[in-house]
Design a protein around this nucleic acid. Structure first.
Lengths: 245, 245
DNA sequence: CCAAAAGTGTTGCCCATACACCCATGT
DNA sequence: ACATGGGTGTATGGGCAACACTTTTGG
């Protein structure tokens, strides 16, 4: 194999620049983050990420990277920070562990490219977890959702990226009314409340929360949701069209 | 001159990745931004920027770039966004205007490197304008402060960068108590008020502002400042040490 | 004493919180 | 009828804005 030709196709990408995504989903009253078990090495967990093509803008690159993993288009995305300490990759144990495997699978040039020093643009994404169809990426063994308070040890600085992503989400959720991106089309007020409680890891009182939400005039009340439980049936709500972000 | 060797020294930097800084200063009741007249071409205005060395972290690179322009160390810096639409540089008229000049001054390889597609990390910086000693950078004809509401047409997407930088400053100023970075050590309450008015382009009432600031318990009252004016002399204040950011 | 501007006190409003209560649902 | 949880109304307190007032300064 020729050492000067990339098998992976590195020429089409920006060198030393990557995107890492903190994809948030909400399920069973918990806020979860999508992560991948790395295909090579042992027990290496990483965020879904990828590279930026030379003729692609950054947001589109992130959309493409996430479409490949989730099958979803037009995901809500927010750039929140750039990560690039000198030793994110080189000083990590991951590098030694996978260098040989990458050289075998691709070629030396690719392994060097992939394991050079990278600066990574952090995005967070909000998805309706029920609409996601997980599909592994080039370097993923499998993908899985993990609750934000049960994040395992992760490769490189990916734990820090999740942390800063969550901070940014907390800063923006209420201000920009982003929560609806994590829920299905219709939802009860209690489900919305529980989403907020999951994100902020703190309890809110139902009636005041309801008043605040209804005062915003962005929700339309639909029919009641009869669950068969012996109590008053809650109303379903939907975000009025013009307020979708 | 050898086309394969860089005169400018591009090998030491991350390719296609730059930093652009929106440096804010406050003077004569106005919020100002530092900008440079580009050394080549005609009437091209750019933000102070630069590149990231291979062995340097991002924040340090920004500090270095600004130290070179202002003589200040440990400037307050905040990364606020990445800019990288496909056509920031290529589609701009600036490219054609300066390509030949750059080829002459450096070499073709350098001109190509400098005018390739760049993704730029936007920082905003807050400085005490009186402490700044302006010094031109490699590509600057001269540097100057411009009021935020009098920004000229700028090269590439630098107007957008300033706009987003100002939005970020407005979001952070009060929350993170950053205003003091724009003022000298000691200041009157009115000066602080006027700084806020300049940043938010809106008036605040003196007594309520004063109450809010004093309630924060982060200011210590010093001696009065006698200006010779025939009115009550205002107190000087200083941010108490532990609250410096 | 007076004009100018600094600094303080008082009131009312809005919003978030806490508490109490009423309503629908299925057994 | 009643337990369960959804949904609404009312009082309380803190923070902010508007207004009125007192204090200091140099002429």
């Amino acid at each position: 194999m020729n050492n000067f030709m990339s098998v992976f196709g590195t020429e089409q990408y920006f060198p030393q620049l990557s995107i890492d995504c903190v994809v948030f989903g909400y399920e069973e009253k918990s806020l979860k983050v999508l992560m991948a078990k790395f295909k090579f090495g042992k027990n290496i967990w990483i965020l879904p990420g990828g590279y930026i093509k030379q003729n692609e803008n950054i947001e589109n690159a992130a959309q493409r990277i996430l479409f490949d993993r989730t099958g979803l288009e037009k995901i809500y995305l927010e750039q929140f920070r750039v990560f690039g300490s000198e030793n994110r990759v080189e000083k990590s144990s991951v590098k030694d562990e996978i260098y040989d495997t990458l050289t075998e699978k691709f070629c030396k040039a690719d392994a060097d490219w992939i394991l050079s020093r990278f600066i990574s643009i952090g995005f967070y994404a909000l998805v309706d977890i029920n609409k996601v169809n997980l599909k592994v990426g080039e370097f993923d063994h499998f993908l899985t959702w993990v609750e934000v308070d049960k994040i395992p040890n992760m490769a490189y600085d990916h734990e820090e990226i999740i942390e800063k992503g969550l901070e940014s989400l907390r800063r923006d959720l209420d201000q920009k009314l982003l929560g609806f991106n994590l829920l299905p089309e219709t939802f009860t007020m209690k489900e919305l409340l529980e989403l907020y409680e999951a994100v902020y890891n703190k309890e809110f009182s139902m009636n005041n929360f309801q008043k605040k939400m209804l005062d915003l005039k962005i929700l339309e009340r639909l029919e009641k949701k009869f669950t068969g439980a012996q109590n008053k049936a809650p109303y379903l709500y939907r975000l009025v069209e013009s307020n979708h972000i």
